[in-house]
Amino acid sequence: MPLSNRKSKIASLLLLAALALLALAPLFFTDGTEGKTREAVVTVDGKIIRRVPLARERDEIFTVSTPYGENRIAVSGGSIRVEGADCPAKICAKSGAISQIGEVIACLPHKLLIEIKEIK
């Protein structure tokens, strides 16, 4: 393998630019979040388990039981987070709270996903 970039600078730059553009592609599909009514959609295995409107005055805590384990989910102040879970690494709980459209919390071991969407 050649150790320097002398072979084709242009091809190299084009490749790097294409990859950066590919990385940023999802941003072109998300639009602003201001003033829209939002809901959190909880799915397990791709199936919708629960929809929670994220109104400011609404606080609640509920537990989602999946075939793989349980997640305790807390809604408060217009945001949602996983408060506790019995998955091994607790990555979902460490993700913190989300509130903006397009934001996601995933618990891969439980195949659980919380996604913020616009209520249309």
């Binding site: 790097l16 990385a23 999802p26 397009g102 891969l108 195949k111 996903l113 996604e115």
Partner: peptide, 20 residues
Amino acid sequence: AVISSRALWSYLPALGLAGL
């Protein structure tokens, strides 16, 4: 694929650039 959702791709900008 595991979680059966496309929603995770919203991590691509951060993860893709970090990987680069």
